[in-house]
Design a protein around this nucleic acid. Sequence first.
DNA 1: TCCTTGACCTACT
DNA 2: AAGTAGGCCAAGG
Length: 133
Amino acid sequence: MEDRHSAPGEEKMNFYEKMRIVCMAIPEGKVATYGQIAMLCGKPGNSRQVGYGLKHDLAGPDVPAFRVVNGRGELSGAIHFRIHGLQQELLREDGVDVLWNGNIWRVDLKKCGWKTTVEEAERFQRLFAKMAK
DNA sequence: TCCTTGACCTACT
DNA sequence: AAGTAGGCCAAGG
C-alpha cells in the first residue's frame, strides 16, 4: 500500500505522474535538469528518481525525455535511447546546439536551460494538489 | 530488514 | 575543464 502513511488531505499523486506534467511543460528549444524536475515535482533531492522514471518510461509515453540533461548540461542519458544518437538529433531539431567534447555530448545550460522561478514551482504544487483532489 | 544500484547534485580541486 | 568525494533516496534483490 503506497499512501499507508499519508495524512488526510495529503498529496496523493505519485512522483512519476507529476514528472509527466512537468516534463510536458519543458518548452521546445529548452532543456531541464534532473534536479530541476525533481524540485518542480515538489521533491528536491529526488533527481535520481527522475532518471529512473525516464529510463523505465514511468512518466508515460511521448514525454520529451530528450530535453532532460544533468546539472552540467551533459546528455548523461543518451545511451539509454532506443536509437543511438537519437537524443542529439531531437535536440538539434529543437534548435539546440549540442557539442561533443571528446567524451560526452553536452549543451550550454546558460543558453538553453529552462529558467523556472519559485512562483512557477509553487504553481505546479497547487496544480498537483488540485489534480489529486 | 539490510545492501547495492543508479539517465543525479553540490562543493571542492 | 575535468575529476573526485560525499551526500542523496527510491527500487529491487
